[in-house]
C-alpha cells in the first residue's frame, strides 16, 4: 500500500502526471469510490483492498477528466485489459496514460508507461470467466427456452432505463448512443418490455468481442439485473467461434471487423 502511495506522490511531485485515478474509502465500510488525486499529500487517502473492484478505466475518456492533464491510473488486470482494448479502438494513444498495475493479489504495484509493458502485464494473468461465473452461465443455458425467456423477462421488467450500466461501462464511450438516435428511433424511450429487451440486447451486441467482463455494468444497476451475463455469454461465444479475446493487445483486432473464410456455423441453410 505504501508502495502505491509513494509512487503516486513521486509522479505528482515530479510533474510526470497531473492527476492519478485511484480508489478511496466510500461512504460506508463496504464500498470504495474513485479518487482523483491531484496533490502529493492527497495520496494518503488512497486505498487498495478487496473493496476496490470498480473498473476505473471508465474515467479515462470522460472529457472533464481529460482536462485534468496527463493521467496515471491504478489498474487491476481487468482495468489494464480495458486500457489495451480502448487503445485498439483508437481511444487512447501509447504513453498517454501511466498505468500503475496492481497484481492479482492486490499487493505489488508496477509502473507501466507503454502499451508494450501493459501487454506483458496482462499476459501474465489469465483472462476469462471465473468458475462461479461459468456455473451461473451454465445454469441459464441449461434452462429450457421458455424458462430463459421468462427469466430474462422478469429481470428486464425491472429495468428503469436509467442507463447506469452504460455510464459504468468503459467501452460505452460513444458520444451519441444508439438509444439517443431518434431518426430513426431504434429503441423506444420509455421503459416498457419491448424497449427494455431491445436495449439490453443491443447493449450486449455492441459489446460483443469488446467486453472485458469487469462486471461494472451489473454492479452499477440499481435494480440488480445481472446484465453482465449477456456480455459474458457473447464473450464465450466469440472465443469459442473465432478465438477472439478482447483486451490482450493495443493492436488487437475486433472480432466483428474481420472474418475467416472458414468461420464455422451450423445454422445457415
Amino acid at each position: 500500500m505504501e508502495e502505491l502511495k509513494n509512487k503516486v506522490r513521486e509522479l505528482l511531485k515530479a510533474g510526470t502526471v497531473q492527476a492519478v485515478i485511484g480508489y478511496r474509502a466510500g461512504s460506508d465500510e463496504k464500498t470504495a469510490r474513485v479518487a482523483f488525486v491531484r496533490q502529493p499529500d492527497e495520496a494518503d487517502g488512497l486505498i487498495l483492498d478487496p473493496r476496490c473492484t470498480d473498473n476505473l478505466a471508465v474515467y479515462l475518456l470522460k472529457p472533464e477528466v481529460k482536462l485534468l492533464g496527463k493521467l496515471a491510473i491504478v489498474a487491476r488486470p481487468t482495468t489494464a485489459r480495458t486500457i489495451l482494448q480502448l487503445a485498439s479502438e483508437n481511444q487512447l494513444a501509447d504513453g498517454q496514460v501511466i498505468v500503475l498495475g496492481v497484481s492479482a493479489d492486490g499487493k505489488a504495484v508496477v509502473e507501466l508507461a507503454s502499451f508494450e509493458a501493459l501487454e506483458k502485464f496482462v499476459g501474465q494473468v489469465p483472462a476469462g470467466l471465473t468458475e462461479e461465473e461459468k456455473v451461473l452461465l451454465a445454469k441459464i443455458e441449461g434452462m429450457s427456452r421458455e424458462e430463459r425467456w421468462a427469466f430474462w423477462q422478469s429481470e428486464f421488467a425491472r429495468c428503469i432505463k436509467c442507463y447506469a450500466c452504460r455510464a459504468a461501462c468503459p467501452m460505452c464511450y460513444c458520444s451519441r448512443c444508439i438509444v439517443e438516435s431518434n431518426q430513426p428511433q431504434w429503441i423506444p424511450v420509455s421503459p416498457h418490455d419491448e424497449g427494455n429487451l431491445e436495449w439490453h440486447l443491443v447493449r450486449a451486441m455492441h459489446l460483443a468481442g469488446r467486453c472485458l467482463n469487469c462486471g461494472f455494468c451489473a454492479k452499477a444497476c440499481p435494480m440488480g439485473i445481472p446484465l453482465n451475463l449477456l456480455t459474458q455469454r457473447l464473450a464465450e461465444e466469440a472465443k469459442a467461434a473465432f478465438g477472439a479475446v478482447a483486451g490482450g493487445s493495443a493492436t488487437g483486432e475486433y472480432a466483428l471487423s474481420m472474418f475467416k473464410a472458414d468461420d464455422k456455423e451450423g445454422f445457415i441453410r
Binding site: R148, L201, M205, L234, E237, M258, E265
Partner: peptide, 18 residues
C-alpha cells in the same frame, strides 16, 4: 463473411435471451 460472424454471435445471444 462479415455478416456471418455477426449472425453467429447474434443468434447465440437471442437463444440465450430466450
Amino acid at each position: 463473411y462479415h455478416a456471418r460472424r455477426r449472425w453467429i454471435l447474434f443468434r447465440s445471444l437471442l437463444d440465450f435471451a430466450g
